[in-house]
């Protein structure tokens, strides 16, 4: 029954319905690395900073329903988003360790003919790439030498460590390692684990901006050409908020942002057009020239 070579793709609401160019780059990279995926009718994960804060039981029941959809096919989930990964792993964790919650949620799922069993795993795509690092290296056809990259793995990719079981929660290295396969230089900027501030920006923009400023100042000071991320919420925070940040602080923040799979796609010889880099808000022309 269990065929583990193919994952169920969980692109999530933001990538699927707002910034699909990231899915395009991800699919190209997965093809080149040999990661097989197929689709499933997943609903919203839902958001571990939004719906979970609204109602933990609503978060559990929706997350569990998504897990049931993948369980029905006996396939693990590959997630393109930190938030979705955090939710699906967090829901699994709560249901596996709390039989009262599990019974309560399964009683609800039974009414729609589903049952959460806990038979599948949820993986962030960064960890899947890390497990296939040799294949990633093998697919690189163009060295991005000279490109200085500031890596931002984002909070929910590795925290809380207890149930994300991913990278080191306070000294993450995996994203750096994968970026380094392209020949680019990873720059240390000292604020690697600082949150992008997406969630607080939604409720209190002024505090979100103050936080983003700390992050952007450190990245700027380190001389980075580009920020590399692996979460659509972080991507949007960096790609769309730099303009407002500049206005608010009368400064000029304009460092381009690349999703990890976009950076890899470029290093694997895919053209900027094919993966829709023109849809980014921050300007990429400078770095595209630099990498030629």
């Amino acid at each position: 029954m269990r065929k583990m070579t193919e994952y169920k793709m969980f692109e999530g609401c933001t990538i699927g319905n707002r910034i699909p160019f990231i899915e395009a780059a991800s699919r190209k990279v997965f093809d080149k690395v040999g990661v097989q995926t197929s689709q499933a009718p997943f609903a919203c994960c839902p958001d571990p900073t939004g719906v979970k804060s609204f109602d933990n039981d609503a978060w559990l029941v929706m997350g569990a329903r998504n897990l049931c959809v993948a369980e029905a096919e006996g396939k693990d989930i590959i997630s393109l988003c930190n938030g979705c990964t955090n939710t699906l792993r967090g829901v699994s964790h709560q249901l596996k360790h709390d039989s009262l919650k599990k019974d309560k949620i399964n009683a609800q799922l039974a009414k729609v003919g589903k049952e959460y069993k806990g038979t599948i795993d949820v993986k962030h795509f960064v960890d899947v790439l890390k497990d296939n690092l040799d294949k990633v290296k093998g697919a690189i056809s163009k060295q991005l030498s000279g490109l200085k990259v500031a890596c931002h793995p984002g909070c929910h990719y590795m925290r809380p460590a207890e149930w994300m079981e991913s990278d080191d929660p306070m000294r993450p290295t995996t994203l750096n390692e994968i970026v380094a396969t392209t020949g680019a230089t990873v720059v240390n900027y000292g604020e690697e684990i600082l949150c992008c501030g997406s969630a607080v920006t939604n409720a209190y923009p002024e505090h979100g901006m103050a936080n983003l400023k700390i992050k952007m100042d450190a990245i700027t000071k380190a001389g980075a050409d580009v920020i590399c991320v692996n979460c659509p919420a972080c991507f949007q925070q960096f790609d769309t908020q730099q303009r407002d940040l500049s206005k608010q602080y009368d400064a000029n923040y304009n460092i381009p942002v690349l999703y990890l799979t976009e950076l890899l796609a470029l290093a694997m010889g895919v053209s900027a057009d094919e993966i829709g880099l023109k849809f980014h808000r921050t300007r990429l022309s400078g770095i595209l020239e630099k990498i030629g």
Partner: peptide
């Protein structure tokens, strides 16, 4: 709270 989970760690 921006739910960065740093405090948990």
């Amino acid at each position: 709270c921006t739910v960065c989970d740093t405090c948990d760690e």
